[in-house]
């Protein structure tokens, strides 16, 4: 990745954050914290990794992406719209009556969404099913799924991890967005999922780590996954900052599922627009 490409990704991710915040503000509800922590990961996947075609969202041999932590869809919607799966005009209608963009991903209504999700722990199982279908048909597509660190408290996640390793789904990559926070507090206080890397390894995964906001680090981890020859499914532990990009939201537990008021929104938007400008981007 050259510096121009990296700059381009940063601009796209910044735009995704701006649109996500706008949608959540308009809806007076949504989940800004995790949407902001995952924005760089979505951007990298959709612009550098996934073999998808916005003009043909159901393309048979496409790579699949399942957002297991479904509540973090506002910034995913923004990336899909920027990529051309649907109009940017849909984004401000997030969560409104009659809107294409539901509060949690709906594969029936939204082009580019490969699986309906939102109930935590379920997306990774569907991702396993997609990976299994690929194996059965000797297809070479990959399946990526993004989970939250809090989500790893769900028993079904571990059922799915066991299944993936047992069935040797080396076409599956589970990325865990470790922003360290969940609704009731820090993940450490509430659920205690650590040591996550050792658990994933013990469950039969090849584990990579990355800084989920540094595109070089993301690229190194994803390249590790793409070139893996272990025959195992892969996991990437992504260290992230919840609320990344909006300073007053960063690492604050109360921004998990709250919309900013008008004043807060303006402050956050201003901050993100300044970042965009400094990157040389325009909305």
């Amino acid at each position: 990745m050259n510096s121009n490409e990296k700059q381009e990704l940063k601009i796209l991710a910044c735009k995704a954050r701006i649109y996500a915040l706008e949608g959540i503000f308009n809806a007076k509800s949504g989940h800004p914290g995790g949407s902001l922590s995952a924005a760089d990961i979505y951007t990298y996947l959709y612009y550098k990794v996934l073999n998808v075609d916005p003009a043909d969202p159901q393309m048979e041999n496409r790579d699949r992406f399942v957002l297991s932590k479904g509540h973090c869809c506002p910034s995913l919607y923004a990336v899909l719209a920027l990529k051309g799966f649907f109009s940017l005009e849909e984004l401000p209608k997030l969560r409104k009556v009659g809107a294409m963009l539901q509060g949690h991903p709906d594969m029936k209504s939204t082009p580019g969404i490969d699986m309906s999700s939102g109930s935590l722990g379920q997306g990774i199982s569907a991702a396993c099913g997609m990976a299994l279908a690929g194996k059965m048909d000797n297809k070479d597509y990959r399946v990526f799924t993004l989970l939250g660190d809090g989500e790893c408290e769900e028993g079904q996640v571990w059922e799915a991890l066991m299944f993936a390793a047992h069935k040797k789904l080396d076409n599956l990559c589970a990325i865990i967005d470790c922003n360290g926070l969940q609704i009731d507090g820090t993940v450490e206080e509430v659920g205690g999922i650590e040591p996550l890397d050792k658990k994933l390894e013990a469950f039969g995964f090849e584990v990579f780590k990355m800084d989920g906001h540094d595109f070089d680090s993301i690229e190194a981890a994803v390249n590790g996954v793409l070139s893996s020859a272990s025959g195992k499914p892969c996991a990437i532990i992504a260290k992230t900052v919840k609320g990344k990009g909006v300073s007053y939201m960063e690492n604050k537990v109360n921004w998990h599922g709250a919309a900013p008021n008008a004043e807060q929104y303006e402050a956050g938007r201003k901050e993100l627009l300044a970042q965009l400008e400094s990157l040389g981007g325009v909305l």
């Binding site: 699986m115 199982s125 569907a126 299994l132 279908a133 059922e159 066991m162 299944f163």
Partner: peptide
């Protein structure tokens, strides 16, 4: 495919398989 004693995951896997035809 025997999914083992994990019914919740089995249904999710089924959903993913169905999403792929």
């Amino acid at each position: 495919f025997d999914c083992g004693i994990a019914e919740g995951n089995m249904i999710g896997v089924a959903a993913g398989l169905a999403a792929c035809g």
